[in-house]
Write a protein that binds this DNA or RNA. Structure first.
Lengths: 112, 112
DNA sequence: CAGCATCCTGTGCGATACTG
DNA sequence: CAGTATCGCACAGGATGCTG
């Protein structure tokens, strides 16, 4: 996805990267989930995000890792244990989307 | 796109709809642009959002209309003139994503 | 000017089966 | 448990050309 800079007053470019991330179906959900739980393991996330496939989860986690929004810690145990948690940047992001989430909830309520 | 409710504490369901909207590549950009300009015409948007195709813009505008985030006013003139602007809900949305936009800008700056 | 109609491609993402 | 490996499809969205 490419978003060019505009010739106009406001520059929308910085939005480019978040959008690519956010536009992934489960991204916000994962971040929110981690925001509520401190640390979660792969299958924890599989349960919380009902309906996600292991592949999609793996893909997303990798992307969020690359973006520096989450961290991964693997323990050399048997059975293996891996924990995911938000980085500081991820926490900031989590707070940044709070108004959005609240707006969504509010809107949701008004419609019922 | 389907997002089931989870069995867990937090309900992520209200996020479902915004995500479907937000996940459209140009949605946030259009809203932001309209948030900065009061009223914009089709070609104004085409210019501000450099790179968008008329088809994509049309599609998105329709969707945002359906979502009730923007309004459309057509003037019976020749050549035709059509103006788009945010609804109250759209303005609220615009404010709701402000922290996100700012987070993105900030992050963008730190990286250079 | 403000679009609609078509065609076409990339890829997000789901389903399923398998592994260290 | 925490993934990987395949397969397949729906759909976002780009390019181009046409119209009231």
């Amino acid at each position: 996805m490419t978003i060019k800079k505009n010739s106009n007053g406001i520059c929308l470019c910085p939005l480019k990267e978040i959008i690519t991330t956010i536009s992934k179906k489960w991204a916000i959900l994962i971040i929110s989930a981690l925001g509520h739980h401190d640390r979660l393991r792969f299958n924890d996330l599989m349960n919380i995000l009902e309906g996600i496939s292991p592949k999609s989860l793996t893909d997303l986690l990798k992307e969020l890792l690359n973006e520096g929004l989450i961290n991964r810690e693997a323990f050399s145990e048997i059975p293996p244990r891996v924990e995911y948690f938000l980085t500081d940047e991820g926490k900031q992001f989590c707070e940044a989307i709070l108004p959005l989430v609240q707006w969504a909830e509010n809107r949701d309520n008004l419609r019922r």
